[in-house]
Structure formats: structure tokens, C-alpha cells
Design a protein around this nucleic acid. Sequence first.
DNA 1: ATTTATACCTAGCTTGGCTAGGTAATAGTA
DNA 2: TACTATTACCTAGCCAAGCTAGGTATAAAT
Lengths: 111, 111
Amino acid sequence: MERQSNLVTGSIDSLLLCLLYQQPMYGYQIIKELEERSRSYFKFKEGTLYPALHRLEKSGLLDGKWQTTAVGRQRRYYHITEKGYKSLAKRRVQWLDFLSAMNLIIRPVSA
Amino acid sequence: MERQSNLVTGSIDSLLLCLLYQQPMYGYQIIKELEERSRSYFKFKEGTLYPALHRLEKSGLLDGKWQTTAVGRQRRYYHITEKGYKSLAKRRVQWLDFLSAMNLIIRPVSA
DNA sequence: ATTTATACCTAGCTTGGCTAGGTAATAGTA
DNA sequence: TACTATTACCTAGCCAAGCTAGGTATAAAT
């Protein structure tokens, strides 16, 4: 299972929105979740994730809130916003369109 | 049909290798072919394509040869190399792995 | 004669992933 | 007790790469 990081690049924001639509999470958790759910395919670097979360929050697609655990640890939980959900819906369509286009090139149908 | 250019970014080199594996082509032709075959989804900019072709040639995946048409027009035809074909085969696997991983996140299967 | 299409090129802007560092608290271990 | 690993966050700066916006030149069409 070899990862080509270029491929992932364009889908990072969508992956985050998709995950946080299912459930609010904090950064460190997101990294672990993505790795586990994808059977170790996705291994987000912190230098990739945190700036991405900040970007998405700044553009209003996510909303981050600090929470303190029982043991006093600080975590920043990210929730998807209404705007974020709309963006996610749009991205799902774009993803399918992209797949269709890729298939037309990769697997050309004989006329 | 809305294109999210980020999505395409990681697949540009693979698309070119895939296309040129089927048949050698010159730059301008590649742009037209990709647009036609993908039903207008792909609309490569020259500033994207030419540097990509040069990059792939420099790294030995493509081989470019100048040819002159009957009317005297100069065209640079790109052929895929042995190394390029091996790379393409690898990229096909990576593409499928990527799709699998994406599906695991986008369409989580209930346990 | 002018415009459009063909056919190539690239300097420089900008976005964004990632490296490589940092801080700080908790949990586990020798 | 001291050390290491894990959790949890952050970011300056490097670097790759798409794209804008320009350029050159020829051929075809109007």
C-alpha cells in the first residue's frame, strides 16, 4: 500500500469536513481516526492538519472550541458549520465528477 | 459540472502518462484530447501542461521529439519511455489504493 | 488586413504540504 | 526518582507546483 501524497492533497479539506460532519473531533484525534479508518493509508502530518483546520475555521466551514478534559488537558474540538456542510455537499458532487472524468481517461470505452 | 482544480492536481502526471501510453502526442493536442475525452471536464492551462511535460521528460518518464508537419509547423511529440510505463503501472495501483481509502472515509460501512 | 487558431515557451505569483523545530502535560517504565 | 513515550497543540520557513499573464511565430479563416 504505497501512498502518493499528491493524490491526497486535493482532498484534505473534504476529508476533514466529511469526518467532522459525522462527529466533532480534535486535531490529534482526527489524525488517529483517519489512519485507523483508512487502514493506515492516511497518515496526516501535524504540519498539514493544523494549518488546514485553521484555514477551514477562518473561512467559516469549521468552528473550533476549546474544551478541558477531566484530567485538565486542553483540546480544541472542531464542529462543522452550516456553511461547511453546504461546502461538503458540493464537494461530494465535485468528487464524483472528478472520478467520472478520470475514468474516461484511464479506462477509455471502445466506441 | 464544476471542477475543483485541487483534485486534479495530484493526477496530472498520471493522466499524461496514461494518454501518451495510448499514443504519442504533442502539447497542444494533449490539451484538446483531454478536454474532448473527458467531456470538457479537463481544461489544462498551458502554464500547467508544458512545465509538466518538461518535468516528466527531465525525470525520464517521457521522451520529446521535434517533428515538422507538411506545412512546416513545429510540434514536439512526447513518447512514453520504459521508465514512464513502469511509473504508470505503479500509479495505477496507487490510484486504486487512494480510491479505496477515500471510500472508507466518505462511505463508512456500518459495522 | 485582421482575427482566430495552432503551437510553443516561461518569469513570477501564490497556495499549501511538509520539515523540523517548539511548548507542555500525562502516562508508563526502569 | 528519572527517563521515555504519548498526548495535544502550534508555526517559521522551505519547496513544489499550478496558474496568470505575458511572450514569439506560423497558418487558416474572415
